[in-house]
Write a protein that binds this DNA or RNA. Structure first.
Lengths: 335, 335
DNA sequence: AACCTATCGTAAAATGATTTCCCTCGCCCG
DNA sequence: CGGGCGAGGGAAATCATTTTACGATAGGTT
């Protein structure tokens, strides 16, 4: 393994000069810089980043905690993060927590042991391991994305789920729908709560507060969508609008509707949320709410990096705009 | 930050003893071990992994190079890798290369700079950066998964794409199909070549060698599937079997078929490949070839770890079994 | 000629953990 | 009782790089 010493010997300069040309190029004259760079070229020298990180206490890596890597929504957010990291020269370490608090804590150890310089969490939960260092007068860089948390003192990026679900419900009501079934996320998850509130507000503002929707709690997966659709159809098939809190659940539900002989959108209109790529290719194509997934990732990363470079950020709350995408899965109900 | 020195001071032992109780507990008596552990507990000491890695020249992390994180096939493989890594105590660093050789090389630098102890590549390409250290008498731990490479001297995990595509083509031929359109992957990608060979072999063995299929080259994405379906339908709509080299392309194609007024499977049977979750929820549900995705990841990781622990592996080639999943998208053609 | 400034060298400290080498102490056996 | 042995634990070297504090030198300026 060639070290900085080898380079210095070949270039005929001191170790300090080699280090300077790499870390503070402006401190060394152009002439010697060239000599050193040529020597580096020749030897194929690669600085030992472990030694460097160890010395500087900076790992040049960030950690992204993902509840579920196989979820298309998250993988797009990650792409956004990775793009910005790329530009900034940071490395991205991904941890798939599977929603498991235990695993989440384990991964968070990376922050304590100086293996990463910052953490982006793609779900609402702040790992206990990080509490001490994040909630601090000199906080460890930490950004929360995807979920929107008002009541916590660290930066949060997300969309206005309440307004978005309001809008999409409003769309169905405008078309003439009155009775709804709702396939939600899990209780306690902010996006779930917010979207449910948006739905209810739309109902109340349209004087439909008395129409009690049938609600089934899913988990954002295809299977749970199919399963919930089955449940609500058995419980009370009189609804004409089926509102799902994720595209995957909506696509799962579409299949169940077909099994039950219900046509979409003629018999039942269906809406999703997220606008993953498959939404456009569902049968029928899904009316949904597009989230700026990549942008969420980009913004989260930018804020994190700013924080890491010392810009005081604390408690920034950013809401990015969503966009309703109307496709063939919704239309006025048969009268 | 509390260091090992602090702990040693509080425990009243030397720093060597503290290190030993953590790394080689059997080398220290139970009595002092307890004292040290209590001191660690008290101080909330977390070993600085950077220092540790630096000293031991082991980072306890592996790098996984992924062509496209948003591809459901890959994300499942990654899950498998991560599971095994979890058990073994290794950390997984993910690099989304986007198929870009440049980015691939950049990420590979992690291996040279000792930031990772091993690399798993989920596509066929061996980054140039790694060539020197992988193709070596004492090779850097490296495993290739997903693609199956015979002619390279490092471990490779994959499925028998040729046989799998043979089987699925055979299935269609048995049902009575004679004329096919094929939506492939990109030329030069091994899975593409293998699957295409499997298709041709099935044709020839069934004396259909003269039936020239219409072929369109896709890129495994939904959009390319839809686009290719359009092309082949325009070129020659007389085929009754549409063979796609990925589920995503098949799902994209299904929509185009509908646009063209073609019914699946009555008019045209469609097959995919991979058996991603969405395949079951396509309309109609997709006949496809299930790949043992998670298992591929697990096996790849296990082999890599074995390699990292010094077991001589060199040139292991593993083929895992696939399973044909017959669903509603294929049936005998109308006569 | 005196003074400055930019540039680079030298030497050394510092980073935190691991590991080698060696010492000590207690115990056992002859 | 002496010698040997083995286990436990301390001191110090080590890892590669960065950075600091100076000193030296060359070249230019006044």
């Amino acid at each position: 393994m060639t070290t900085i010493k080898d380079v210095s010997r070949i270039a005929g300069v001191s170790i300090a000069t080699v280090s300077r040309t790499l870390r503070n190029p402006e401190k060394v004259s152009e002439k010697t810089r060239e000599i050193v760079l040529k020597a580096i070229e020749e030897t194929g020298y690669q600085p030992n980043m472990l030694a460097s990180s160890f010395r500087t206490k900076k790992s040049n890596a960030i950690l992204v905690l993902v509840p579920n890597m196989a979820n298309l929504f998250y993988s797009r957010v990650i792409r956004g993060i990775q793009q910005v990291a790329e530009e900034t020269g940071y490395n991205v370490l991904l941890g798939d927590t599977g929603g498991d608090v235990e695993i989440e804590n384990r991964y968070s150890g990376f922050a304590l042991t100086k293996q990463v310089d910052g953490v982006i969490q793609l779900s609402k939960h702040l790992p206990k391991t990080l509490e001490k260092i994040v909630l601090n007068e000199n906080p460890f860089p930490y950004v929360n994305a995807c979920e929107y948390l008002d009541d916590r003192p660290f930066p949060t990026i997300g969309v206005d789920n309440e307004a978005a679900q309001y809008q999409i419900t409003e769309h169905l009501i405008q078309q003439g729908h009155r009775k709804f079934a709702v396939i939600t996320g899990a209780n306690g998850v902010p996006v779930h709560d917010d979207r449910l509130r948006g739905f209810h507000r739309a109902m109340i503002q349209n004087r439909l507060g008395d129409e009690k929707p049938i609600i089934c709690e899913g988990d954002f997966s295809l299977d749970s969508g199919a399963e919930c659709a089955r449940k609500v159809l058995i419980q009370d098939p009189s609804f004409t609008g089926l509102i799902c809190f994720s595209d995957e659940m909506a696509i799962g539900a579409l299949q169940t509707l077909k099994e039950f002989g219900k046509k979409t959108p003629e018999d039942i209109s269906v809406t999703g949320f997220d606008d993953i790529e498959f939404a456009r290719y569902a049968d029928p194509p899904l009316t949904t709410m597009r989230q700026p997934t990549t942008e969420i990732g980009e913004v989260a990363a930018k804020i994190l990096f700013a924080q890491m470079e010392g810009t005081p950020i604390e408690n920034t709350k950013i809401r990015l705009p969503t966009e309703m995408i109307i496709r063939a899965s919704t239309q006025a109900p048969a009268t």
